[in-house]
């Protein structure tokens, strides 16, 4: 690890200023940041520790909206009965991520900005990685192992997968992100926060240098209460998703009034399966329609040799998640 300067500002203004300096990077819980520094992928000159900004730690479940401070800890939010009742999928997505130690340390702001687990990105012995070293090529696409890579949203420059769980609930339920940057505050629809890799996979979000995520908000909609996060993973805990789905359903009798589907473990960014949602809206929800929705969700997928399994798997996970929600509604 390279030597670095460290600062822990006490005000948002100071933090924005410090984080805007060349070579500065933000650190919150540090579970992504320190990891990548230790393996030499990131080498900031200055770390701006924002955990001194106590105002950003809280969260609230209101009648119209859910609000989460960027420094709210994963475990604290996951464990809140009000969150569990209002939006079970969100709590489940947090519970099923990482390990208890990591969830206790990691923040929601850091969580949505976690970096890919592409093994070539994470190992500097590989010279080719457009994300780590723009223009160097892509070891994954150059005959590499692609079993944990994106089948949705990838480009010829990069097929890295967005690995997080929590973000799938945000993208599917119209979350917004509040930020404070050198130019003041702004609100960004969550769906617009992450950028597709395109030709510039090293640019992952629309955030400007020094721009700090301060909060995440979600409008409260009926489909939230009937939501579920289904995560397929090779071990029972402490594993990234092979495929996952955050779904929520609002029924009107036997007809789907609203449905939300977010996909994890399969895409370059947090991914919303809008076409699948559209196919379900206004119709019945049953094994057949759920499976059809799963199929549609992956219609545009571009599987690589190693990741071909994610197509049928992802479709089944979508179907399974929808049917679980359906059976919960039915059981009431």
């Amino acid at each position: 690890m390279k030597n670095f300067a460290y600062t822990r500002p006490r005000s948002l203004g100071d933090a924005t200023e410090a984080a805007g300096n060349d070579g500065a990077q933000i650190i919150a819980g540090g579970t992504t940041m320190v990891d990548l520094m230790k393996i030499g992928v990131l080498a900031p000159e200055t770390l701006v520790d924002i955990t001194g900004l106590g105002d950003l730690e809280g969260h609230a479940v209101g009648t119209d909206a859910l609000q989460f401070g960027a420094l709210a800890r994963m475990s604290k939010v996951a464990d809140d009965p009000a969150v569990i009742e209002a939006f079970p999928a969100l709590s489940e997505a947090l519970w099923k991520a990482a390990s208890p130690q990591l969830r206790n340390a990691a923040t929601l702001g850091g969580n949505i900005l976690q970096r890919t687990r592409c093994p070539y990105f994470r190992d500097t012995a590989y010279a080719q990685c457009n994300k780590r070293d723009p223009g160097s090529g892509c070891a994954a696409l150059d005959g590499g192992k692609t079993s944990h890579h994106a089948i949705l949203g990838g480009s010829e420059a990069c097929v890295a997968m967005y690995p997080g769980d929590f973000a799938q609930t945000l993208v599917a339920f119209d979350a917004q992100v509040m930020t404070r940057g050198p130019g003041g505050t702004r609100t960004i629809p969550f769906a617009e926060l992450h950028l597709l890799p395109g030709d510039t996979p090293h640019v992952e979000t629309v955030l400007e240098p020094g721009e700090i995520v301060t909060a995440i908000t979600l409008p409260r909609i009926p489909a939230m209460a009937n939501s579920h996060y289904l995560k397929a993973r090779d071990r029972e805990s402490y594993a990234f998703a092979a495929a996952s789905a955050a779904v929520g359903v609002e029924m009107d009798g036997d007809t789907v009034r609203d449905v939300r589907i977010g996909l994890g473990g399969v895409a370059a960014t947090p991914w919303r399966a809008r076409a699948a949602e559209d196919a379900l809206r206004g119709g019945p929800l049953n094994e057949e329609t759920a499976r059809e929705a799963g199929r549609i969700a992956f219609e545009e997928a571009v599987p690589l040799e190693g990741s071909a399994y994610k197509m049928p798997l992802g479709a089944d996970v979508v179907a399974g998640a929808l049917l679980t929600v359906k059976s919960r509604i039915g059981g009431e």
Partner: peptide, 18 residues
């Protein structure tokens, strides 16, 4: 896991070696 073209072991850490 193995990276075939570059003949390297790929998941050399206990986050990815399950």
């Amino acid at each position: 896991e193995v990276d075939t073209p570059r003949a390297r072991f790929l998941n050399a850490n206990i986050a990815e070696y399950l």
